[in-house]
Write a protein that binds this DNA or RNA. Structure first.
Lengths: 235, 235
DNA sequence: CTGTACACGTGACCC
DNA sequence: TGGGTCACGTGTACA
């Protein structure tokens, strides 16, 4: 699938392919036209000519297949439309490498056993509501008041709505997870986190809407905006 | 990099390439060797022969470049060592497609904002230790005793060591996240989870080893460590 | 005029 | 023995 709908970059490199087909090399092949019947009663030259013709046709099919695959590769990787064959393949291998590393990074990110025994407990919270100008600041200060440390944060907005995915630990909980400090520091109800986030939600609802007339019906993603993981706040 | 150390599948298809180089077509090119100086004082046939030779050489370099890239693609995708060129390209485009879809799936997995306001709080715990036969059963019962519900679990083992990544909520916490039930049910210290997992760890350590000699000395990566920009410690 | 890039046909090779 | 694949040299177009 998806092989012939492309721009036919390398097939139309001059003539409409029939003219090329009866080109120079084909004529040199027809130069051997003689009258010499084979010993088996069958003329051998027409057979040889037919074999040669089918041979060249098979080769032409092979080239078409390969070039069709190259064209689909061009559609898969953006920006390679007018590239060289070799440059296209270079881009292909770089894409495969970076995609492979990114997938393995993500999937085995927290998935490889460490060499030391350890126990880690984190709180993963997500808040989804309509976007407000001061939402991020409010959220940040609320979490700060709970003495929680932000390990990871991911924010995405679509159609005026925002979703914040946060991973939290208690202060110093990362390194102290295997020690006794963790136990004394991390006495926070998940309850507390939940209630705090609900308070953020309520405060946001009591204020005027951020995007009044939102003309965005199309999808629009926004990954990790520069504002959220701001560490230092009001001292 | 990484182009000539491969098995040289298509370059060694018969002769050692020097014999091929002086093959049939090259001899037919040398047939035009005559003595006929051009009117500008310079002989034209040797020039044409040289141009033709450099042309074929350039074409040969181009083929080598493309085939080198194809060889690196063979090294990148396992199992394509003895494949056709077209089959190799087919495998390449399928790999690119699946890698692309998997990355987008992972990255946008929990990333789309929901249509209703909601707050969700989960506990994400990970336990990393040497593998034991009864470890899983112990872990399961321990979490059950805490009235926690396992939302997601990921277990990976390497070299006799095991890592369990678990995402937990209180019983019925998933649907009741936006209601008041959640608050009354989910009064569990993350502390408690941590201590319970530590007890599992201690029970595992007091029992005979599962795989005696663990030969793991290779490097192992661990992404997303608690190295995120830490919020200011003391307000 | 000099490269560079592409498609083509052809000989050799392997099932 | 054909059908399939490969590398090669060549003709041709474009910069």
């Amino acid at each position: 699938m998806g092989s012939l709908h492309f721009g036919d970059f390398q097939l139309m490199r001059g003539f409409p392919e029939e003219v090329v087909h009866g080109g120079v090399a084909a004529q040199t092949a027809l130069v051997f036209e003689r009258e010499k019947p084979g010993k088996s009663g069958l003329t051998v030259e027409p057979r040889a000519a037919m074999a040669l013709k089918s041979h060249s046709e098979a080769e032409r099919r092979r080239r078409e297949r390969i070039n069709a695959h190259l064209s689909t590769l061009r559609t898969l990787i953006p920006g390679t439309g007018k590239m060289d064959k070799a440059a296209l393949l270079t881009e292909v291998i770089s894409r495969i490498k970076e995609l492979k590393t990114s997938t393995t990074e993500i999937s085995q990110g927290v998935n490889v056993p460490a060499d030391a025994d350890e126990v880690k407990v984190e709180v993963e919270a997500s808040l989804c509501c309509a976007d407000r100008p001061e939402l991020l600041m409010d959220l940040k200060q609320t979490l700060l008041a709970l003495r929680l440390r932000t390990v990871k944060a991911e924010i995405s907005t679509v159609g005026g709505r925002v979703k914040n995915d946060i991973v939290l630990t208690c202060e110093g909980g990362g390194a102290a997870a295997a020690t006794g400090e963790y136990d004394t520091e991390c006495n926070i109800f998940t309850n507390n986190v939940h209630q705090a986030l609900k308070s953020v939600l309520e405060r946001a609802s009591s204020q005027p809407d951020f995007s009044a007339g939102s003309p965005l019906s199309g999808k629009r993603r926004r990954l990790s905006p520069p504002s959220f993981p701001a560490a230092s706040s009001s001292p």
